[in-house]
Design a protein around this nucleic acid. Sequence first.
DNA 1: GTCTATAGTTTGATAGAC
DNA 2: GTCTATCAAACTATAGAC
Lengths: 192, 192
Amino acid sequence: MPTAVPDTRTRILDLAEQLLLTRGFNAFSYQHIARELGVKPAAIHYHYPTKEDLGTAIIGRQRRRLGKWRGLPRLTELSPVAQLDALLEVYLTHLRQEQRVCLFGSLAADFRTLPEPMQRELRLFNRELTAWLAEVLTAGRTAGALVFRGEPVAKAAQVLTTLAGALQVARVHDEHQFYLIFDQLRSELLPE
Amino acid sequence: MPTAVPDTRTRILDLAEQLLLTRGFNAFSYQHIARELGVKPAAIHYHYPTKEDLGTAIIGRQRRRLGKWRGLPRLTELSPVAQLDALLEVYLTHLRQEQRVCLFGSLAADFRTLPEPMQRELRLFNRELTAWLAEVLTAGRTAGALVFRGEPVAKAAQVLTTLAGALQVARVHDEHQFYLIFDQLRSELLPE
DNA sequence: GTCTATAGTTTGATAGAC
DNA sequence: GTCTATCAAACTATAGAC
């Protein structure tokens, strides 16, 4: 593991991620990043040779983040409801940051135009996230703290899909529409 | 009302809509349409001067379709549950047509890069659809045929969001994932 | 090791041919 | 009225300067 990541590499990745989540993969270019960094577009290619490399790196980093996050004692020690709320907090944070959608919601519509490595990485990311949520839902239902019908995996997929969609709705309309869906979702999971 | 729409105009609109729903707005070009029609890209500009015009026309047509559909006696005479199923059938049709997402799900991620007329038209489309579904849900709950918590408008927004998201999930993973979410959603709306 | 000059495509759009 | 030749700008990417 490198002790000191070259700062420019990380700055590029941060900017690219921001652009991806606010504009979409096919609507940002190396020029956008270069201008912000005060550098020529070609300079970006030194750090990330192709846009495919850049896109794959963004998803890969989020996958690694998710992997670490899942394992944090500060998270795993929480009750299932609190773990669910920790997840919901992530989506609220996205909403507050210039109406970002989530990674999945940003890439799904353009999916068929994405390079294959990006497709593969996104599938893995979503699968891992769904699996984690399914575990939380299972534990929550067993403890009587969460209520829902059917299989935990199906419910997990539904919840994540709704959250991704809710961020998209917020972008098209406004925050209020997001909270409407968000509160509806949460209230249905908690016992009356 | 024109009795005979010039065929080329409609063919262009059909192709553009297909491309929009399968690739996304920023990932299709006049060249895609022109090649399919056996004509030069510039020819498209005669019928739709700018891409903004073309995009707005696609959404406008779907709005008009929705307006007519809502008013069809064959639909309005149905029970609320049957009306809901008629809506769900639309999403199933999208799924079967080369993994198309719905109009909203296609444009939401790219929303901030869209010309304003397209943004306005999409907001109207989504508002009208949500209002209609809210009415159906209200009638269904009154009749005891549908069950859900909270306000019908909130539930309507949640349902549409989930459906839009489910089509995106199908694209990233497969049909099975769509049906998982779809069945979960439907079963939660029907009395046990 | 890091960046710039530059190339080769593709884009959306205009002017003008038929 | 319909389409083509052509353009200017933006795109991703390579080769080479410092």
